[in-house]
Design a protein around this nucleic acid. Structure first.
Lengths: 208, 208
DNA sequence: CATGTGACTGACCAGCCGGTCAAGGTGCGC
DNA sequence: GCGCACCTTGACCGGCTGGTCAGTCACATG
């Protein structure tokens, strides 16, 4: 029923959160990213936010609710952002590179939220929301595979396996936060640019 | 062999653990891999092992001690196993592929332990052990970079950045446990074989 | 037999966990 | 003035956490 969907949307996105609610979410984002979900207590979030623990339960249903809203916010605009960053009239290679750059850029701009959201598989608190998360991830992966398929169809790419190639690309992006130090070295965009070079050009020298 | 190394080995491996101790470690390995470090309690491990919680503290110093021993066991033989799997008289491409296959094989054979060990950065309970873990990881990465450097030096590989290429290779291997279902689809070795094909051959068609 | 040693246990601890609740502001419409 | 809606709080709850401890048992050594 349509009413239900409308209810779901409003109850979930809930317009713009109040300043204080958003501040609590930001605080939680950093704590979750630093220490992980389990190791971060509601007291930690409350203290770091400068409010009482009870207030958290006035604005949020539970600890998982806070976490869900954080990861929801973190990934909400990812698909749209990446899609908008891909040029229409371009080679598949350019599109692939744009995809990787956009994902890396989004990652670096929402680093804490991304780490917090991707660090846990987080079982199944709200099934409906979980399904939408999964659907969004599938859509994200499909975007990437379509670029690869397009390149193969046009003869620009070798006949690689799109699913496997996509996974390798995403592995590089997703694993970055495990070793990348934002303080030094290259920016995430520079790193994935390197990855793109390696992937597109291949490691072995081209033999005729 | 130097005395220091011998000391290190005996002090840490401490001979073969008794049957019961090893059983507790195996039980803990599975629990940590399933539920994560924080979500696994000492009671869980004790109950699942069929012993009292107090016995855990008779054999182990703390919860972190159990975890450290598990991840130590898990990675102990990785370097040696991978090194032995690399053929001496072979092209750099063959060596790279052998490296990836061996790492993937080791991963699939010690899946639970590997997931448990790699899921947490786990701060710093025992500095000495932590440093040796890091040293081992550096050694592992160096092995991979040396293969790549060798290929570049001989003219077999393109002048790619060894560090960056190594990270991309390891990203694919390390990220696998996040999406790979051991029940179905390809084996880890088949997957990294695909990765090797893509990486070595490149995605773009070779233009003379 | 006594003595000692290491594996093993149930009961217990302080402290923290997520979550609840009744009550106290505070400001706004009436 | 009153009532009302919302934000905010400190005190509190049962339950679980990692960890401790005194003591039991089997067995080996003298």
């Amino acid at each position: 029923m349509t009413d239900q969907i409308a209810d779901d949307i409003t109850s979930d996105e809930d317009g713009v959160p109040s300043e204080r609610v958003q501040f609590i979410l930001d605080t939680g984002t950093n704590l979750f990213a630093e220490k992980g979900y389990d190791a971060t207590s509601m007291r930690d979030i409350a203290t770091a936010s400068g409010v009482s623990k009870a207030l958290l339960y006035h604005h949020f249903a539970s600890k998982e609710d806070i976490y869900a809203r954080i990861s929801f916010q973190a990934t909400r605009n990812l698909n749209a952002f990446v899609r908008e960053s891909i040029p229409q009239d371009a080679t598949a290679a350019e599109k692939l590179r744009a995809f990787m750059r956009a994902a890396a850029r989004f990652f670096s701009e929402h680093r804490s939220a991304w780490v917090a959201a991707s660090n846990a598989f987080w079982s199944d608190p709200d099934r409906h929301r979980m399904e939408r998360r999964l659907a969004r991830r599938r859509e994200f992966e499909k975007m990437l595979r379509d670029i690869i398929k397009e390149g193969i169809a046009s003869g620009e790419f070798n006949p690689v396996d799109p699913a496997m190639t996509g996974r390798l690309v995403l592995s590089g992006i997703n694993w970055m936060h495990r070793w990348h130090d934002p303080e030094k070295s290259l920016t995430p965009e520079e790193i994935v640019d390197n990855y793109a070079d390696i992937l597109l050009g291949g490691v072995c020298v081209k033999r005729d």
